[in-house]
Amino acid sequence: MTGIKTIEAGHFRIPLSVILSDSTHGQITAFELITVRIRDGDGAEGVGYTYTVGRNGGAVADILRREIPELIARRDAADTEAIWHHIWWGLHYGGRGGPVVLALSAIDIALWDLKARRAGLPLWRLLGGFDPRVPCYAGGIGLDLSVEALLRQTDDNLAKGFRAIKMKVGRPDLASDVARVAAMRKHLGEGFPLMADANMKWTVEEAVRAARALQPYDLTWLEEPIIPDDVAGHARILAAGGVPIAAGENLRSLWEFKTYIAGGAVSYPEPDVTNCGGVTSFMKIARLAEAFNLPVTSHGAHDITVHLLAACPNRSYLEAHGFGLDRYIEHPLVLEEGKAIAPTRAGHGVNFDWTGLAKLAV
């Protein structure tokens, strides 16, 4: 393989057709897409991306344009592990998280896409291959919806083929959360996979109380009940609340996941490939979870993550996120009987509508 020749970053603001809401971010009217296109000396291309929920995308794009190119210019694009470490340590003092790791994630995704394309393989097969049919849930984002509107959103997701649903909790009063979960459970029926996401809203004691109140409704998991920095708090909630805990979308490295997993603080580790360090880190996190006999789930970027979970024997559910990027992708995620189907196209198979995106450039 020839060396890396060009790196092109893009920054776009994608308006949402439906306003989203959760307990900490409030109302979300748009999200930022930050892309990177890497080409080698033969003209082969790999594409990666990351995103934000409306802020700091400029910082990520700036790192991709100003800092990273000189670190990896002319390096062999096949050396994903070496390049990952070179960027990590090259930007370490001002990094270890935040925009730096989002930029690193996008670069790493692009390099793995390029590697799989050159091999003529879909990414999930290059990563080992396990099962291209991945259980998938709809990540509903609508804390402010009325119960009636929430159930209509759920019916719409069921009509699309989803056979697992996640809803938001974390309203000002616990009784309202419990009533909404109870309504969802009654609507979906016993045994239907239902998750609830608090988006870091509570204190530890509030979360324990909430978990106990929600216990009768058979949640698959309660997600991010408290701030991600409190590992011991997550362990207490898991031990005292009686409900499985999913967490990890706000963790930024393999080592942060190690602390959670070894500390008994999580039931479903939940990395996001666009902010945990890319494909390289995601797969290490998944293998670490496997060593502890834990199922791994995911956050965001379902069009890429379907490949990663299709290569993991300990995968649980893929999250299908509600950010509406499908409008700008040639081949949106395919769902069959509640399973997301990993594509057979070479690479990760995400082909952006660059002309359409250009109109949204920041």
Rank of each mutant, 00 (worst) to 15 (best):
T50S: 09
A198V: 04
W255P: 00
V279R: 06
I245P: 07
L158C: 11
G54H: 13
M195C: 00
V60L: 08
W354P: 07
L251S: 05
D113F: 08
A240F: 01
R236C: 01
K201Y: 08
L325N: 01
T203D: 11
R96A: 10
A77G: 05
A30D: 13
E319T: 02
A196S: 12
P228V: 07
I285Y: 02
S23T: 06
P313C: 00
N157L: 12
I107T: 10
E32A: 11
P216K: 02
T2N: 14
D272A: 10
L254P: 03
L20M: 12
A342M: 11
G300Y: 13
V208E: 10
I4T: 02
D326E: 15
A149D: 14
D22Y: 02
L214T: 04
E70F: 14
E45N: 04
L111Q: 07
S267Q: 05
G26F: 05
A182Y: 10
D131N: 11
H187F: 09
Y317N: 13
S298F: 02
T6A: 11
A73T: 14
E32M: 02
A179P: 00
D113R: 10
V53H: 14
L309A: 12
A310I: 01
W84N: 01
V178G: 11
P15L: 04
L288K: 14
R327V: 02
R171N: 11
P313V: 00
R152W: 01
A103E: 03
T344R: 03
T29Q: 14
E337T: 09
A44W: 10
T24I: 07
F257P: 12
L214Y: 05
L294D: 06
D40M: 14
F282W: 15
M1D: 09
A247E: 15
D42V: 03
I329E: 06
A73D: 09
E249P: 12
L158H: 09
A77W: 11
N293D: 05
I237E: 05
G189R: 09
Y137E: 03
G41H: 12
A320Y: 10
R55Q: 15
D62R: 15
E330V: 00
G140L: 15
C312P: 04
G26M: 06
G54L: 04
R74E: 14
L121G: 03
M184F: 14
W112V: 06
W124D: 01
H234M: 01
D326R: 13
T280A: 05
N293C: 11
L71K: 08
